[in-house]
Amino acid sequence: MSRPIQATINFSSLRKNLQLVRELTGKKVIGVIKADAYGHGAIPVARVLEEQKVDCLAVACIEEAINLREGGIQSPILLLEGFFSEEELPQIEQYQLSTVIRQTEQIDILSRWKGKPFDVWLKIDTGMHRIGFLPHEFSEAYRRLKECPSVRNVVLMTHFSSADEPEKPKTLQQINLFNSLTEGYAEETCMCNSAGIMQWPAAHGDWVRPGVMLYGSSPFIEPHPLDNRLEPVMELTSQIFSIHNLPAGAPIGYGETFITDRPMRIGVVATGYADGYPRHAPSGTPVLVNGQRTRLVGRISMDMLSIDLSHLPNAGIGDTVTLWGKGLPATEVAHHAGTISYELLCNLKRARIKYIDTAE
């Protein structure tokens, strides 16, 4: 048998999360599948979303889009970072892609394009201050795009910086600014990421673009009323392959960051930071052994981690350890590790991928 770390991807949960998006918004849906669908497999995920008649798919860059097209995906695809050079325009035409427009230089390039026109998504920077046109630049950018023969349709969009922190006033400020800038324009609009979908219904606009919530993980730092309606699509598991009974005062792992304060039963699991498990997850981070909760002890190694089996006398070698998934949200693990579930999911490596569909 090969090394036992496995990521099980459940398409039934993916469908249920998409249905929740549709229930909450009633709007057109852009399924965000950049970064290999957040570690879940871009082409398999895209096939399910396409079967569910998602309105559009979104990726970061043209390489990800070409991978989908060559994998047989026919749905509309949006390049969220837009194009980086004039050389990409023939590929955008060939693969029938749409592109975000985020800066004046892109409009200059489009004005020289002699091929077929594209659909474009005009990005307005309402306060994220990452990419997009500042408010005073918006009207001129819009005018130029509408006059450009290379542009077919325009959608107006922005991105929230703090939608996952509802107590902050920033999101409402961004919504109000976007609405004031786009008032009177006939174009469709798109504001909401996952946190916007779940928390800010007034901002749903014409399009929504769920990312992490599609994969059943909450975008929020604190618990949210809708968290329990999300179903984790990925369950990451491995197995115990070694057990030791240690006396009090025994250090565990690199750096001796954990020392037993009593006799303890310690299991070693075939998972480490080279698999994408966060190295900085501290002692006390939860895992499940045969569905029962226990904790990490000691520092994460490249290929292994140690867990406390002292209160689980029946746990043995070969038993299943759930690192995140049903009963243990990736968000909870990420919180212990001082990061976010997005990073855990995207960083997955070396695990065998198994696709299942419990609806079948």
Results as ranks from 00 to 15, higher is better:
Phe83Ser: 03
Gln103Phe: 11
Lys114Gly: 12
Gln91Asp: 10
Lys114Cys: 13
Phe133Thr: 01
Gly82Gln: 09
Ile107Ala: 08
Ile131Thr: 15
Gln94Trp: 04
Ile107Cys: 05
Ile131Trp: 12
Ile131Ala: 05
Val100Thr: 07
Phe118Ala: 11
Val120Leu: 13
Gly82Asp: 12
Ile107Gln: 05
Ile107Leu: 05
Glu87Lys: 06
Ser111Gln: 15
Gln94Thr: 12
Ile101Leu: 08
Glu137Gln: 13
Asp108Val: 12
Lys114Met: 14
Lys116Ile: 15
Ile92Gln: 02
Leu97Met: 05
Ile101Lys: 05
Asp108Arg: 12
Ser85Arg: 09
Gly127Ile: 00
Arg102Trp: 13
Val120Thr: 15
Lys123Ser: 06
Arg130Gly: 06
Arg102Met: 09
Phe83Val: 10
Glu137Cys: 02
Trp113His: 12
Glu105Ala: 11
Arg102Phe: 11
Glu86Gln: 08
Leu89Trp: 04
Thr104Ile: 12
Thr126Ser: 01
Val100Gln: 01
Gln91Ile: 06
Leu110His: 12
Glu81Arg: 06
Arg102His: 12
Gln91Thr: 07
Ile131Arg: 02
Ile77Met: 07
Ile101Asp: 04
Asp108Cys: 09
Leu134His: 04
Ser85Thr: 15
Arg112Trp: 14
Phe83Trp: 07
Arg112Asp: 15
Ser111Asn: 15
Val120Gly: 04
Leu89Asp: 02
Phe84Val: 11
Glu87Gly: 09
Pro117Ser: 14
Phe118Glu: 10
Gly115His: 13
Leu80Tyr: 07
Phe83Leu: 08
Val100Arg: 01
Lys116Phe: 15
Ile77Gly: 03
Leu134Ala: 12
Pro90Val: 08
Gly115Thr: 15
Glu81Met: 06
Gln103Gly: 06
Trp121Thr: 10
Leu97Glu: 03
His129Asn: 13
Ser85Asn: 10
Leu89Glu: 03
Pro90Gly: 06
Arg112Val: 14
Gln96Met: 09
Ile131Asn: 09
Ser98Lys: 05
Glu86Tyr: 10
Ile92His: 02
Lys123Phe: 05
Asp108Gln: 13
Lys114Asn: 15
Leu122Trp: 13
Leu134Trp: 03
Leu134Thr: 03
Glu88Thr: 11
Ile77Asp: 08
Gly127Met: 02
